[in-house]
Design a protein around this nucleic acid. Sequence first.
DNA 1: GTAGGGTTAG
Length: 615
Amino acid sequence: MSTQKLLKILEKTLPSNPASLSNQEIAENIAKILASAGLKPLQTMPSLLSHLNPHITHLVLSNSHVPPCSCLCFFNFLRRNDSFISEKPNLQAHVTLTCRLYGARKFAEMKRILNFVVTDDDLRYPVSIVVSLIEDRYNDPQFIGKLCDMLMRVYSDNKMFQEAVEVFDYMAMNRLEIEERSCFVLLLALKRSDRMEQCLGFFRRMLEMGVEITVYSMTSVIDGLCKRGDVEMGRALTGEMINRGIKPNVITYNTFVNAYAERQDSAGLNEILSLMEKDQVTYNNATYTILIKWYGSSGKIDEAQKLFEEMHKKGIEADVHVYTSIISWNCRLGDMKKAFALFDELSARGLVPNVHSYGALIDGVCKAGQMEIAEMLVNEMQSKGHDLNQVIFNTLMHGYCKRGMVDEALRLQGLMEKKGLETDVYTYSIIASGLCKLNRLEEAKKLLFLMVERDLAPNTVTFTTMIDIYCKEGNLVEAKRVFDEMEKKGDKPNTITYNALIDGYSKKGKMKEAHRLKEEMEDRGITPDTYTFTSLIHGTSVSGKVDEALKLFDDMSSKGLAPTVVTYTAMISGLSKEGRSDEAFRLYDEMIKLDLMPDDRVYSSLVSSLHDTRV
DNA sequence: GTAGGGTTAG
């Protein structure tokens, strides 16, 4: 456009007496400027907009001579420049623009504008107002449909679930066609926010209203139920949906396989697998990933490996998830050589290892105490473009703590914070227990207090670590107090939590209380393990009640729990103290046969037992 | 648009 022409418009826009211009005229002028020269003139001469009011804004935005893109620029400008332009776009302006964008099929932008509508404090109106304002002005059912769909998405994204449901209700009431895809977003958001009751309720409403359900919605709801532990309800829902003609697919089945694996229900798991076979649903990568974990977590690495090979034979190419899973389980079960071989194989097959794959391997070498190799892997990972994240940092810190190098872990924590990565519950628990192991109890406590100060919620692991610290200090009163606090907060104690307390009481010789705790945990369905028995045996044995300790020792074996070096040591030292040297030596032979390495304490006990008998 | 992979306590 020529400068002259533009000046002409500007003259009109800025008359000697602006008040003499009508809204209509001002809007026309702004529109002309926008259409011909864009935003620039308005930006450089904000006085052009000095008479702006909501009506003018609406007129400009709805002017069909102004292309939607220019409308958007204008709108963004008004939103941004609220310092010198008092006219911020109101609800109407948002709606008008939304409509223009719809016409131009600019859906992403449309969604962004609607996001302002539902999140801006100045714009928050009840759903009914928003929708009816739109409907009053634009009576295009297709547009209304699209808009409702987007509103449901935007409300769901912002966790404004009540509002999202209101949009649904509005659509139902006005007999607008409701697509499953719109509802799906809300179902997922509810599931992900742990609102399964609402999720299920909404799914029921969808069915009631005749929304055409597909396997997608069905599977999401089922997954939510399974994750909440309601596998049976999930199965029932599947049955109901089959009756309605919706068939579960491999993902639905995987959801159940995963749920049964998680609750260690092999009968349920096998039942699902045979249903899959009956339905001729073939396993995919996810199925194998879950099954590898299933076998791995029960120590059956050979079975896991067999499955992994089976999938190749069946012509299913393992993806990076499957590789990471099998690498991880080889690491956890101690076969680092195999883990590294698989890691090489992964790359050789043209797959790209990611942070998870490196994470599995790094954890493996960390647990084996090979921190030098861990550092090398980290370097390699970084050179491939994957930066360290929270999990990798935590893994490394755990590795260093395991080797007693807490100060190195603390250095990493500092580095982590400097990199802008958040230290989480894992970080604090790892370092606190590392400090605890070195008897740096004050520091460990301080760290956990700091964690709470930083508004990180302690979990069962954190509480257990705290209990352990107090027990090691001999402060059973505080230990018990933390235990009670944990229960009050709704965090369930587990075997390890009880063990920490029982060990605390046992070491103080308070065996009555220690035994009471063992009974309590059993009553609650929390199974005592080797550690529980070892603590009790130690306490009982050193307090001179060796026969009682021997009874516990037998109890333990009859429960299938293998005594450790520590258990034998406790037993042997108890027997030795009583001068029962024959029995002590018998246990010594037994532990040697079991390939358990006796430490110095065992020998000194045995020696002293001989000494005692001679006296 | 639904499922699956790496980190914590003795």
